[in-house]
Write a protein that binds this DNA or RNA. Structure first.
Lengths: 179, 179
DNA sequence: GCAATTAAGTTGCAAATTGCAATCTAAAAA
DNA sequence: TTTTTAGATTGCAATTTGCAACTTAATTGC
């Protein structure tokens, strides 16, 4: 009647940020709406004309995105018909993921850099390709990575560095997996 | 009868890697399948039991992902019933985007780091949060960024640094947008 | 003040996508 | 030679998406 062992295991396996993220922004149009929001689009009719989305779908997505705190809905004080949708910090925090996706699309589908080009405002040079970095700032490639269990880290944490390494290596051998 | 001016404008506005990327991996389950592939899942029945996906949907997604060169389909030589699906370089290249999404989910939904933890194999320390970097490796935040038109860059490129900056600043003022 | 317009939705219904259960084919195991 | 396994395909139900018309409230033009 309650939660079975399998259910708990299922829940734990979903203790990963990726499925969580997809649950909030994985529907059709959600990321395109956020892209428009990053582009300074703020109003319903403006989203509607900039992208090829249907009215009812846009309305439902805007509700979902504001409900999950990614967009903020503010009625305009000067014109009370209008509503302003703007990115919250949670929404703005999606920029690295969106830039990484865009760069992937540029590299593998477009073949050339997208237009406009994302540049550093200080010197107008294009930003780097998104990379995974170590704590001491080295660029890590897929073969430099491995995954260890959080509880193993917790156990090993106050212990000596040798212990930690032994532990982690054993764990690494055990799972070739990732997320 | 041919392509109208509006069609061309439409096409140019879609000259962005993000819509392109979403066209290939934006459907429901696609990123979850790739996550499983990163986890070492290779076979049909294995995908089926690891995730809660329906057989026909899995079959159709595997076709789409192999057609777009993200997965590779190899019949096993030893057991000719079995088929191995593995990530191509194009597929492995999605890792930064997926890690960025996962970190966003950890920060804003989960509240704690996901398990297992992604670490540098050299010292077993967790990787950094994904950031956007300048060409000279500074971490850039949203307010440090701007977008300039590729053709403007091309024109300004062989010219002096002062020209480039003037040009770019003018462009920046013109558009507050991003992608 | 009153008709026309605008902004942001809502509603009804058609089309496409997803999900489930049963079936199919070829190959391997018992 | 029956049974099992792996990778699908098929038919049908449920959900999601898309389109067009309608609604409501506020603003503008006259």
């Amino acid at each position: 009647m309650g939660i079975s062992g399998d259910d708990i295991r299922e829940d734990l396996s979903e203790q990963c940020g990726l499925p969580m993220a997809l649950a909030e922004i994985g529907e059709k149009w959600s990321l395109m709406i956020l892209r428009a929001a990053f582009n300074g689009v703020r109003h319903f009719e403006e989203f509607l004309s900039e992208m090829g989305i249907a009215r009812n779908i846009l309305a439902s997505r805007l509700v979902r995105l504001t409900d999950s705190g990614i967009l903020e809905r503010t009625p305009c004080p000067d014109d009370r018909r209008r509503v302003e949708y703007s990115l919250t910090q949670k929404g703005r925090d999606l920029l690295p993921a969106m830039v990484a996706l865009r760069q992937w699309g540029e590299k593998w589908q477009l073949g050339v850099p997208s237009n406009p080009v994302l540049v550093d405002a200080r010197d107008m040079q294009p930003v780097q390709g998104m990379t995974i970095r170590s704590h001491d700032d080295r660029v890590l490639h897929i073969e430099d990575l491995c995954w260890i269990d959080a509880s193993d880290r917790d156990i090993a944490n106050p212990a000596s560095r040798r212990d930690l390494e032994q532990h982690a290596v054993a764990e690494t051998v055990a799972r070739e997996g990732f997320f």
